[in-house]
Simulated assay, not measured.
Amino acid sequence: MGIKLVGAKELEKALLKKAKLTAVKDTVRDCGAKLQSGVQDGAPVDTGTLKRSITLEIEEDGLKAVVGPHTEYAAYVEYGTRFMQAQPYVRPSYEEVKSEFKSKMEELVR
Results as ranks from 00 to 15, higher is better:
residue 1 M to S: 15
residue 1 M to V: 11
residue 4 K to H: 10
residue 5 L to E: 10
residue 6 V to M: 12
residue 8 A to R: 08
residue 8 A to H: 07
residue 9 K to I: 15
residue 9 K to V: 14
residue 9 K to L: 15
residue 10 E to G: 15
residue 11 L to M: 14
residue 11 L to I: 12
residue 12 E to S: 09
residue 12 E to M: 12
residue 13 K to R: 14
residue 14 A to Y: 03
residue 14 A to V: 10
residue 14 A to D: 09
residue 15 L to E: 04
residue 16 L to A: 09
residue 16 L to G: 12
residue 18 K to F: 14
residue 20 K to M: 10
residue 21 L to P: 04
residue 22 T to P: 01
residue 22 T to R: 13
residue 22 T to F: 07
residue 23 A to D: 15
residue 23 A to L: 14
residue 24 V to Y: 00
residue 25 K to W: 08
residue 26 D to H: 03
residue 26 D to L: 06
residue 27 T to A: 15
residue 28 V to I: 12
residue 28 V to S: 00
residue 29 R to F: 10
residue 29 R to E: 13
residue 29 R to G: 02
residue 30 D to H: 02
residue 30 D to E: 12
residue 31 C to D: 13
residue 31 C to L: 08
residue 31 C to W: 00
residue 33 A to D: 02
residue 33 A to T: 12
residue 34 K to I: 04
residue 34 K to N: 08
residue 34 K to C: 04
residue 34 K to Y: 01
residue 34 K to W: 01
residue 36 Q to R: 14
residue 36 Q to K: 13
residue 36 Q to F: 02
residue 37 S to H: 05
residue 37 S to D: 09
residue 37 S to N: 12
residue 37 S to F: 03
residue 37 S to Q: 14
residue 38 G to Y: 00
residue 39 V to D: 03
residue 39 V to L: 01
residue 40 Q to L: 06
residue 42 G to A: 11
residue 42 G to Q: 02
residue 45 V to C: 02
residue 46 D to N: 11
residue 47 T to C: 12
residue 48 G to A: 10
residue 50 L to Q: 01
residue 50 L to C: 05
residue 51 K to P: 00
residue 54 I to R: 00
residue 55 T to H: 08
residue 55 T to Y: 12
residue 55 T to L: 06
residue 56 L to E: 09
residue 58 I to Y: 03
residue 59 E to H: 11
residue 59 E to F: 09
residue 60 E to A: 14
residue 63 L to R: 01
residue 63 L to F: 15
residue 64 K to H: 11
residue 64 K to V: 12
residue 64 K to G: 05
residue 64 K to F: 13
residue 64 K to R: 15
residue 65 A to Q: 06
residue 65 A to G: 07
residue 66 V to Y: 12
residue 67 V to H: 00
residue 67 V to Y: 01
residue 68 G to I: 06
residue 70 H to E: 13
residue 71 T to E: 10
residue 71 T to H: 02
residue 72 E to C: 05
residue 73 Y to N: 10
residue 73 Y to L: 07
residue 73 Y to P: 04
residue 74 A to Q: 05
residue 78 E to I: 08
residue 79 Y to T: 12
residue 81 T to E: 11
residue 81 T to Y: 13
residue 83 F to Q: 14
residue 84 M to T: 13
residue 86 A to S: 14
residue 87 Q to G: 05
residue 87 Q to I: 05
residue 87 Q to P: 06
residue 87 Q to Y: 04
residue 90 V to R: 00
residue 90 V to Q: 05
residue 91 R to W: 13
residue 91 R to L: 13
residue 92 P to L: 11
residue 93 S to K: 01
residue 94 Y to S: 06
residue 95 E to A: 10
residue 96 E to G: 06
residue 97 V to A: 01
residue 98 K to V: 08
residue 99 S to F: 07
residue 101 F to L: 15
residue 103 S to K: 11
residue 104 K to P: 03
residue 107 E to S: 11
residue 108 L to I: 08
residue 109 V to P: 05
residue 110 R to T: 11
